[in-house]
Design a protein around this nucleic acid. Structure first.
Lengths: 379, 379
DNA sequence: CCCACTTCCTTCGATCTCGAAGATATGGCG
DNA sequence: CGCCATATCTTCGAGATCGAAGGAAGTGGG
């Protein structure tokens, strides 16, 4: 069995509250955990003795004695996380709170297959850890995001569309052979959703849309990642209304992905004589007010928005956060908003916020950290 | 504050486990609750002393000493629940486990407005309780389902389409004036989902479709009812693909409801010269192999199935249970299955079960009982 | 400056919960 | 029928948790 953090249940709750930024003092912990103040003090002493928490000066008074501020100890440990894309991998070392200590991006063709890719990732982890983490700070967990569906029961990649050689590959087991630690393997959009959730603390139900080369979606219900049977959140193969008929790689006509994904926009632009390398380049064209690019992006947003109308009525989220490399294109989110507000029930949209993702480029890495912390704390 | 059951947290967990049928003995309780066997025995003694549990003979041996079977005490209390429909109300008295002690249906036009309707309901409750419940058995909660959206924050009906005079009416407050007890007001499809959930104990994520006069849908995520902001589960105003264009009462064209609801089928049949009184009558026509009825029902199923494809990919449920008065028409569910399996991702459908609802006609009442038990146990 | 008031945190005895050990009851097997 | 394996339930001391009380450290108002 992999090594978890040396904490019992109550200690874990407290550590989680400090790590996720909910609590900064013993008094905060008592309020948020529901435990008695005396019990909190006892557990905190133990956590400090174990080197997981440390006291660091005092906070600001709220009208009485100043609290003694609690922080994760710098030596509590780190997490190594990666987010695999089609052509690049983003790697990071986080502290247990999920805050990135160092992040880098390396070229990495996922099509080279799982073994080569994962070897590159673990080698990169090793060099990052050696260069940026003191020897007395332990590694507490390892995780990676993949651009395809992951079976939550086996942590294998299943029927991915753009990952030749990965189908049914036991990613988690492969990593577990190198690290005797909690291992996380998760779909990239789901990681993004988990990361984004921290930025919307008042919202229990989120949809996080990832608009990049493909179209992904992660779902947070009641504050927790919704996995379903492993495929939850897929919206790219939904049928959209269309005059003409385009066949998608999945074998069905008129999938959303065939009209509104970054890949689809790139080929549409190519037909118009404009060749770009990556979906992110489309944002530049839109910023430069290239009419065909703007029009295409707006059309993609409208189509995505039409699909979202169904889901908004059904799922009734508090927030739709739009991320991914295309999300920086202003017309995309505007068109999504227009479609959703026009077609959805007033009751479903009255408090709905449709906004750019707040977590930034490292959202998926932060999400991996958040989920790994749970694994490391779970009994 | 309304009176709750006189139990503390641990006692409540144990009582819930017995009430929902998960546990029948102290040993079961110890296994399922995670508490120590000794603690379970203590709490059970208290619950028996309080008259909430009773010991009733012994169960079957599993290779050792026979367990002493635990049951809800017959004097533990009852719940009064109702399910308002357009023209009828279904009323019942349940024990705390949600098992119906008596159920009856009365004509009741919801269009007469909230005060008249609720007065009828409370009068019916009073007579049912007087006739079927001994005086020493206390009423522990009151709940009703309504055929429209309910704001979970205020327990008011909001923007209902077929309930004139009900908009923003404080249903819960009105009932609370008569009963100093936990009060439940919930959408009827949501109640059906809560009731159905008990019949699929291994499934954490369910969609429950109610095909009757309208089309409703209740969602269970991770075993709990998903309310969103109050409108969750609405699928009746999703746009469907169509050659012609039909305007829905909501003001948008081509809503699912305008094609596939019982009301829509009835008016389509009327145009074909076949006049029926209630959606349930359509089932009889289908059973008698009236071609136009069968064809219409099959078309409705296909349209519903097409909408469900989007939701299955997104939500990835374990089960879609189909209930409501139309669900007895075999072609409906067959057509739904065909559409979903044809268009959804294999990953999303590989373990998906699409089946008739198991809870039967009293599903909504049982669901109300399940939710009321939670309210009565919650701190 | 003094004093009332708030907040933070710890001390301490009462209470709750746990786990090990034992008492009780049963089925299976020779 | 007697014995053992198994399961159920209770007893009891050890340890965890709690709430009340109080000490510590600040704020703010006369």
């Amino acid at each position: 069995m992999e090594q978890r953090l040396p904490v019992n249940g109550a200690q874990g709750d407290l550590l989680r509250l400090v790590a996720t930024g909910g609590a900064e003092s013993r008094a905060d912990l008592a309020r948020l955990s529901g435990l008695a103040a005396s019990s909190v003090s006892l557990r905190v002493e133990e956590l400090i003795a174990a080197g997981l928490l440390s006291e660091e000066g005092s906070g600001t008074s709220r009208g009485g004695r100043r609290p003694r501020r609690l922080r994760l100890s710098p030596t509590a440990g780190v997490l190594a996380v990666a987010d695999l894309g089609a052509n690049h991998v983003r790697l990071g070392v986080l502290d247990l709170s999920g805050a990135p200590l160092v992040v880098e991006e390396r070229p990495c063709a996922i099509a080279k297959g799982p073994e080569a890719t994962l070897d590159l990732v673990t080698a990169a982890f090793d060099s990052l850890l050696a260069a940026h983490v003191p020897g007395d700070v332990p590694l507490r967990g390892v995780g990676t995001g993949v651009p395809g569906p992951v079976d939550p029961a086996t942590l294998r990649v299943v029927t991915p569309s753009r990952m030749p050689g990965w189908n049914n590959f036991p990613v988690a087991e492969h990593l577990a052979n190198r690290y005797d630690l909690p291992i996380l393997v998760e779909n990239d959009a789901n990681l993004m959703a988990a990361g984004e959730a921290r930025w919307w603390p008042g919202s229990r139900n989120l949809m996080v849309l990832k608009a990049g080369t493909g179209i992904g979606c992660g779902v947070i219900t009641d504050g927790r990642l919704h996995r379903g049977r492993g495929a939850a959140g897929d919206i790219s193969h939904v049928r959209v209304l269309s005059d003409s008929s385009v066949l998608c790689a999945c074998g069905h006509p008129d999938c959303l992905e065939a009209y509104a994904s970054g890949a689809a926009l790139m080929s549409a632009l190519a037909e118009a004589g404009i060749v770009v390398e990556r979906p992110a380049d489309i944002v530049g064209l839109v910023d430069d007010a290239v009419p065909s690019a703007t029009s295409l992006v707006r059309g993609a947003g409208r189509r995505i928005g039409e699909v979202l109308t169904v889901l908004v009525n059904f799922f009734n989220p508090d927030v739709i956060a739009v991320g991914g490399s295309l999300s920086a294109a202003e017309p995309l989110i505007t068109a999504i908003r227009a479609a959703v507000y026009e077609r959805c029930l007033p009751l479903a949209t009255r408090d709905l916020e449709i906004a750019p993702a707040r977590a930034g480029r490292d959202g998926a890495l932060v999400g991996a950290g958040a989920l790994l912390l749970e694994s490391a704390l779970a009994g």
